[in-house]
Computed example of a mutant assay.
Amino acid sequence: MVALCVLKGGYKFFTDLLDRIKQMNSHMEKPLPLAVDFIRLRSYVDDQSSGKIEVIGGDSLENLKGKNVLIVEDIVDTGRTMERLLEHLKQFECKMVKVASLCVKRTVRRSAILGYRPDYTGFEIPDEFIVGYAIDYNEYFRDLNHVCVVNEVGKKKYASQK
């Protein structure tokens, strides 16, 4: 299996999840062989989706061909970013692709369109913009060890300088 971390927001969840898998492997008669890889996507400006996905980092994903892949993501909002990533990965002919997301937002948009749902979810959260535990707002707040909501004052203070 190849664990594919979606940077930057997913790195803390990815690290904690891999630590748990390694711990489980140490107690198994037949441990799960595990490789890691990284991909970087961009789809947000301030607290709004840009409507497009940019793959802006990572090695060639050719090594995923014929492999079982676990994508580890920080948050699924509308799901459009993950849908686009999954579509992008089809060209690499993975054996199987599953998605683990720390958080999934309960949004009106999701309910109305029955949007994408990851295979594995840590928490469902309200339709608020959260930060912390590597999830950012314009590159701020990744360093927090907890997750919290950014209020309107914080959004204005840390807005992008367009």
Rank of each mutant, 00 (worst) to 15 (best):
Y120W: 12
L70I: 10
A100F: 15
R110G: 14
S60E: 08
E62L: 10
T107F: 02
Q91V: 06
I53T: 04
K65M: 12
M82N: 05
K98L: 13
H88I: 03
V104W: 14
K105V: 05
H88N: 11
I125P: 00
R109T: 06
V76A: 04
S49P: 14
I75Q: 07
G66I: 02
I71D: 14
D74C: 01
G79C: 12
V99P: 08
E73K: 00
E73T: 02
K90H: 08
L61A: 02
E87N: 11
G115Q: 12
A35F: 12
L114M: 11
K52W: 01
L61S: 04
S49E: 05
V104K: 01
R117S: 07
V104D: 08
R106D: 15
Q48N: 10
I56L: 05
F92L: 02
E93Y: 10
K98Y: 15
T121A: 03
V36R: 11
R84K: 10
I113L: 13
C94A: 11
V45M: 09
I75L: 12
S101Y: 13
I39C: 04
C94V: 00
L89F: 08
S101R: 00
M82H: 01
G57Y: 09
A112G: 02
L41G: 12
D119E: 07
V55G: 10
V97G: 14
R110K: 13
S50P: 08
L114F: 13
L34C: 11
V69T: 06
V99A: 07
I113A: 11
N68R: 01
R42K: 11
S60Q: 04
G79H: 09
G58I: 07
V72H: 03
T81D: 10
L89T: 09
F123L: 07
L61E: 06
S111Q: 08
S50I: 03
L64S: 07
L41N: 11
T121G: 03
M82G: 07
R117E: 01
T121C: 07
K90L: 04
